Amino acid sequence: MATGKEIKGIYDMMKTICQETSKLMIVINDLMENEGFKAVSGGSVMWDRSSHFRYPEYWLPYFLQRVFAKGENLKKGVGINIIFDGSNHGLENTIPFITCGLLESQKEKLNKSNELYNAGWTDNDEDEKTADGKLFNTIFSKIGVTTTTYFLPIDILNNQEKVHQYIIKPLICLYKGQLDEAKNMISDIAIGLEEIVHQGF
């Protein structure tokens, strides 16, 4: 086991990561609100965590999510999902990454979204996944949700300009159905699943 000093250093680093991620979420939230979008889940960005002593792997914020809708149409929206560790759900990622994308629901209003969490890498046989360059389309037929998403390495989003360039603008294009424009905006920076799972970035 690590020494007390080492444990405190690791804990402080974890706290710093949470603080920096919060800043990123605040920037995304504010920029989306400026574009007329509103978060569908209030201030919450997590669920499926535990405070039970037998489930320490769920103590940590292994993911964070924000979903936004515009106007009265609450069955269509955009969102971001940050995954630090997907191993609890079958994804052995080597780097933290952000899934950005469009969500369209045939049945329910958008809320917290397991579909956005799984989008682009689901291995469920009932779900249909196709790729178009760096964009991934996933049809969750059982739930009635379709996603169009792309992956970003989290460490490239180190200022507001990059957040606007690689998250906000492409998401708005996806929302408007401008897929080619969105693809062009992220083609030089989006990563594939093989980079997330195997070799890192």
Rank of each mutant, 00 (worst) to 15 (best):
K109E: 15
L152A: 01
V45W: 04
I17L: 09
K15F: 03
S51Y: 09
E72G: 02
S51N: 10
I172F: 05
K23I: 09
K183F: 00
F201Y: 12
G101F: 13
S87T: 15
W47D: 15
K15C: 11
Y11C: 10
D12K: 13
D180N: 10
K109Q: 10
S141I: 11
I172H: 02
G177P: 07
F97V: 06
A39F: 01
H164F: 14
T16L: 13
I7W: 10
E194K: 13
K107Y: 15
E33W: 03
V145F: 04
I10T: 09
I196N: 01
E181C: 10
N158F: 05
F140N: 03
I17E: 01
I82D: 04
F140Y: 11
V67L: 03
G36N: 08
K107G: 10
N114P: 04
P170Y: 07
K162T: 05
K107Q: 10
D180P: 00
L91S: 07
N124A: 14
K23L: 09
A131Q: 12
I167A: 04
K107I: 13
K8W: 07
Y55Q: 11
M13T: 14
F140S: 09
S105T: 00
D188N: 14
Y117W: 08
N88A: 15
G9K: 15
Y55R: 14
P170V: 09
K176G: 02
K134C: 11
E126A: 13
S51T: 13
K109D: 13
A69V: 15
N111C: 05
M1S: 15
V45E: 03
D125F: 12
I143A: 08
I172P: 02
E20L: 15
L64Q: 12
F151I: 03
T148D: 03
A119G: 11
E181F: 03
H198T: 02
G36V: 09
D132W: 11
L60D: 04
G9R: 13
I168W: 07
T3I: 05
G120S: 10
V40I: 09
L60V: 14
K162S: 12
T99D: 06
F97W: 02
T146Q: 14
N93I: 05
Y117A: 00
I83S: 01
L103F: 06
Q178T: 06
G36R: 14
E6I: 05
G9M: 03
F151S: 03
N88S: 15
C18N: 10
Q65I: 04
D125N: 08
F140G: 06
C18F: 09
V145G: 00
I98L: 15
T21C: 10
F140Q: 06
K38N: 12
C173L: 06
V163K: 05
I95A: 04
I167G: 00
V27R: 06
T146R: 15
A131N: 12
R66E: 01
T149M: 02
T94I: 14
Y175S: 00
A119C: 11
T122F: 09
L110P: 04
I7M: 11
K5Q: 11
V163F: 04
Q199E: 08
G101K: 14
V145E: 02
L60G: 05
F63G: 05
Q106F: 06
Q199A: 08
V67P: 02
I139M: 11
L74S: 01
G42L: 05
V40C: 12
P61V: 01
